[in-house]
C-alpha cells in the first residue's frame, strides 16, 4: 500500500519531471505535446479496468463500464490524433 509520505514523494518527483520535460519544448510542438500528454493520461484506462474488474453490484458495473469506454476513447483517440500530427513533421533538409 502506497501511503502518506511515499505517495507525497512520488507526486513531488513526478510533478518536477513533468515540469522539466515540458520546459524545453519549442512552441512548434505545443499542440502535439498537449495531445501527447492527453494520450499519456489515457493510462486512466487501466484504472477503469481495475475498477470494473472488481465491481460487484450492477450500479458499480455500469459506472465502471462507462469509465472503461471513456478511458479507451481517451487512450486510442489521443494516440491516433498525436500520431497523425507528428507524422507531418518531416525533416526539412531537402530543398530549402
Amino acid at each position: 500500500m502506497i501511503e502518506g509520505f511515499i505517495a507525497l514523494y512520488i507526486f513531488m518527483l513526478a510533478a518536477f519531471t513533468g515540469y522539466e520535460v515540458i520546459a524545453r519544448v519549442p512552441v512548434i510542438l505545443h499542440t502535439p505535446l498537449m495531445s501527447g500528454s492527453n494520450f499519456v493520461h489515457g493510462i486512466v484506462l487501466i484504472g477503469a479496468m481495475v475498477a470494473l474488474g472488481h465491481a460487484e453490484t450492477s450500479l458499480e458495473r455500469w459506472v465502471g463500464f462507462i469509465a472503461v469506454i471513456l478511458g479507451a476513447g481517451n487512450a486510442v483517440g489521443g494516440y491516433v490524433v498525436t500520431e497523425r500530427m507528428l507524422e507531418m513533421f518531416k525533416s526539412s533538409k531537402r530543398g530549402g
Binding site: 500500500m1 502506497i2 505517495a7 512520488i10 507526486f11 513526478a14 510533478a15 518536477f16 519531471t17 513533468g18 515540469y19 520535460v21 515540458i22 520546459a23 505545443h30 505535446l33 498537449m34 500528454s37 492527453n38 499519456v40 493520461h41 493510462i43 486512466v44 487501466i46 484504472g47 481495475v50 475498477a51
Partner: peptide, 24 residues
Amino acid sequence: KGLVLDNPALMIAGVVVGAAGTLL
C-alpha cells in the same frame, strides 16, 4: 485515482501530465 487504486503507473503518468499541463 492512482493513489486510490494503489497504482503507481496511474500516479506517475497522471501527475506528470498534471504538472506539464499546468506549465503549458
